[in-house]
Amino acid sequence: MNFKKQLKEGLLTNNPVLSQLLGMCSTMAITTTLFNGIGMGLSVTIILICSNVVISALRKLIPDKIRIAAYIVVIAGFVTMVDLLLKAYLPALSDSLGVFIPLIVVNCIILGRAEAFASKHGVLASAVDGLTQGIGYTAALVVMCIIREFLGSGTFGKGVLGADGVRILPAQYPALLVILPVGGFLTLGCLIALTQWINRKLAEKEKEKEAVQ
């Protein structure tokens, strides 16, 4: 398994949010501060790695007909663990993410990777896939958070660098609109457009390379 190639896929060419368009609910809903983004990203990454490993280890035992139900039970188990851990050790994060932590169960990224990758590959490869896809998801969330927080509240790193973060724009300038739901749709739309553009350029470059050879 080529880790570098998988990482590139997770981050850019096959990014779960920006290219596969999965898990958009949480991406738009919680990306208002950097703290939320990093917390959500890490929670999903951990759950993704664990569920990928377990599902890949059990892939020969689970009957084909009830596999989706079996996957959901495995995922729900890990989500409950993370939910309880966050409630115990990071109550602030648990409060601000609210219902979106239990909703990781129905996050299409995790079920999607279980079905598309973990059910067909070995344990180690699935763990690596979970890690790279998780990093891709976290990266997308962090970029969304930085943009929305900067434009919407004029700060950087709220909750990560002190309670109010570092103020970049004076308080009277930011457009509140960007942290409201509208901003989520607009920012994600623009980011996906950017990813499509980059991916097209990359594909064109590869074609040129092949043509030269």
Partner: peptide, 23 residues
């Protein structure tokens, strides 16, 4: 529309405007 915006990006932006009206 610009090629990069075809499909989902444009749909998301339209949904954003719809969300704005629901605000």
């Amino acid at each position: 529309c610009p090629k990069a915006f075809k499909g989902y990006p444009l749909a998301l932006i339209a949904a954003g405007l719809l969300a704005l009206s629901f605000m």
